[in-house]
Nucleic acid binder design. Structure first.
Lengths: 212, 212
DNA sequence: GACAACATACATACATGAATGTATTTTAAA
DNA sequence: TTTAAAATACATTCATGTATGTATGTTGTC
C-alpha cells in the first residue's frame, strides 16, 4: 500500500506527489472495498486507509462511484484485454494452446494475490445496481469481444480437423466462458475448498478432452 | 405480490392476517432487493411496497438483515435441497439422468420467473460482507452436501462402466458445479445474451460427451 | 532570476438528508 | 382485560457533499 510522503500536513504537493496520492487512494479503496464491501465502505475509511482526509479524496474523485469506476477502468478492463491479447498471440495447435492459456489464467487467480483481491472485488464484493450499472454495461462489450476471439480459436481448430465440424463454435465459446466464470466464482467465494493450482489442469482436461 | 386486506388502517389483525402481512413483506422485499440491490434498499421502500408501514416491518423482523436471512432460509436453501432430492430420485443410467436433470434445472431459471428473481437476488444483487456473511457460510454446507450427491453419481457411473475409471469423480463434480454456476451467472447477468432453453441441451451435451 | 498573480492540492468545518431504531399510541382480537 | 399487530412520532446516528481556509507549487513577466 502506497503511503504519501510525510510532509507536515497541508503543504501543497507537486504534480508527482499528487499522482501518488491519487494512487494511494485507489489502492486503499481496493482494500476497504474488499473488506467492507463497496456499498458499506465509506469515503472516510478509504481516506484514513490512504493516510489522507476526505478532502483529498474529493479533490481527486467525484464520489465513491467515481472511485469504483476508476478502479474498474484501470484494473478490470485491462485484465480482459490482457486475456484477449494472450489469446491472439498463439498460433500452433489452437485447442492445446487455448487449454494451456486457460490453465495459466485461472492459476494466476490463486497465485497473484492482488489479482485475486481485485477480481473478488468486482465479482463478489459489489452489486451492479444503481450507479454502478454503467460499469457492468461496459464489461458486457469487453466480454463480447472476448467471446469473438474464443470463437475464432474453435473455428481454426475445426478448419485444421482437430475439432469435429458438427460442434458449434458459438456453443463451445459459451460453454468455456461459463466454465471459467464458474471456476473463478467458486474459488473466490471459498478459496479453501480447493486449490486452483492443483485442480485447474484436471478441470480443463475434462473440458478439452477429445472433441472429434 | 400479496397485498394485505383493505381494513381501514390501524386495526388489529387476526393471526392469519398477520401471517399474510409477514409474507407480503417478504415478497415485497424480493422485489425491492432485486430492483435496488440489498444494500441500497430501505425498510421504508419495502414497507411501502407491501402496503404497510415500517412499524409492521419492525414488528415481524429485527432489521434488514433479518429479512434477508428469512428469505435466504425460505427460498435459497430449499432450492438447493430440491436439487439434492432431484438428484437422489434417479436410478437408471446415472450420467444420462444427471445430464437431463441439469438441463431441466437450468432451464427453469429462464422459465420460472420467480426463481429467476430469487436467484438473481442471491447471486447478483447482494454482497456477502458484513452482517450477511453468515448466510454465505450456511450455503457452503448445503453446497458440500450437493457435491457429495453429485460425486455418488459419477462413482455409480464408473462402477457401471459408463465412465472411465481414471477420471476422478471429485474433479468431475467440481467441474460440473463450476459449469452450472457459470451458466447461471452469465445468464442472470445478461439474460438477453443467450436463451437457456435453446442452449442448455447443447451446453450439457458438450460437458457430458463420451467419457470413456 | 526575482517576484507577483494565480492555480493546485489538499485539510477543516459545516449543513443536510436520509435511514435507522425505539418509544408511544391505537385498535381490536383473544 | 390483556395483549397482539400494527401505525405514528421521535431521537439519533452517520455518511455525504460542499464551502471555506491555507500554504505552497507554478508560471508568466520584467
Amino acid at each position: 500500500m502506497l503511503s504519501i510522503s510525510p510532509k507536515s500536513q497541508n503543504m501543497r504537493r507537486t504534480k508527482e506527489e499528487a499522482e501518488q496520492t491519487r494512487n494511494a487512494i485507489l489502492e486503499a479503496a481496493v482494500d476497504v472495498f474488499t473488506e467492507k464491501g463497496v456499498a458499506r465502505a465509506t469515503l472516510e475509511q478509504i481516506a484514513k486507509a490512504a493516510n489522507v482526509t476526505r478532502g483529498a479524496v474529493y479533490w481527486h474523485f467525484k464520489n465513491k462511484t467515481d472511485i469504483f469506476m476508476a478502479l474498474h477502468d484501470e484494473l478490470h478492463r485491462p485484465f480482459i484485454q490482457d486475456l484477449v491479447d494472450g489469446l491472439e498471440n498463439t498460433d500452433d495447435d489452437p485447442l492445446e494452446s487455448l487449454k494451456s492459456y486457460c490453465i495459466e489464467m485461472v492459476t494466476r487467480i490463486e497465485d497473484d494475490l492482488y489479482l485475486r483481491r481485485v477480481l473478488s472485488l468486482f465479482l463478489l464484493k459489489c452489486d451492479y445496481t444503481g450507479s454502478l450499472q454503467v460499469c457492468q454495461e461496459r464489461t458486457i462489450d469487453a466480454r463480447r469481444e472476448k467471446s469473438e476471439v474464443l470463437s475464432k480459436f474453435f473455428e481454426k481448430a475445426q478448419s485444421r480437423g482437430t475439432l469435429s465440424a458438427d460442434l458449434d463454435p458459438k456453443t463451445l465459446t459459451l460453454a468455456l466462458s461459463c466454465f471459467i466464470r464458474g471456476i473463478a466464482m467458486e474459488y473466490l467465494e471459498n478459496p479453501d475448498s480447493f486449490s486452483i493450482r492443483e485442480e485447474a489442469p484436471k478441470l480443463f482436461n475434462v473440458f478439452f478432452r477429445k472433441w472429434n
